[in-house]
Amino acid sequence: MHQLEVKNIVKSFKDVQAVRDVSFSIPQGKFLALLGPNGAGKTTLVEMMEGLRKPDSGEILINGKSWLKHEKELRKIIGLSLQETRFTEKLTVRETLRLFASFFGLGNERMDEVIDLTDLGDKQKAMVGTLSGGQRQRLALAVALLNSPEILFLDEPTTGLDPHARLDLWNILNALKQQGNTTLILTTHYMEEAETLCDEIIILDNGKILRQGVLKELLDGHAKNLDELFIQLTGRHLHEETLDK
């Protein structure tokens, strides 16, 4: 059985069709990248999977269960980091984690584990307001991992980070992949991120799926990399930074 099934999802805002008839599914333990430029509809799609937005039509099932009927249950088995969450600056890393741990009825043991996993040991007592961008993203990841989620959703976890901080995060996620217990849905507009971390890649543009598959299948045409493929498909780059190269 697929752990996550997305069927014919449509979502519009006033004058924008953000997601137009998207369907896919993913088995347990796989890492999936939603790759697309700004405004492709990645966040809208992910937030519907997270049960934070209602689709106009279509169905999303996690372990065969829908958000409408099983919200309470599903909240306990997913973990997520939103595209832009600013945690309270006047709390320490550990206080923030303890607060979120309490929502799941978890105690110190699990907190120590995620602090270890995200390498925040020496920042435990630091105020969130004093953290660097990379450290904040690792805190967001730590919060997302607290309940040992079956499915983890990360919305642009490395956008705006320097290459070093990005690599740190990739290492953490790779370690998670080795354990094999977590399914990951990750959105990004960095092709390297999709290439290095994920088993399966969905290229999204204008609310529609352009291509879907493993990296090899996607590149078996004439494209050298994913950005080239995207240019072939749309005539545009994945993101502006690529243009400067």
Binding site: G51, L52, L82, E84, R86, F103
Partner: peptide, 11 residues
């Protein structure tokens, strides 16, 4: 800050 949204995405 999207913190409210983050909080209610938990139980």
């Amino acid at each position: 800050q999207k913190l409210l949204r983050r909080m209610i995405a938990t139980p």
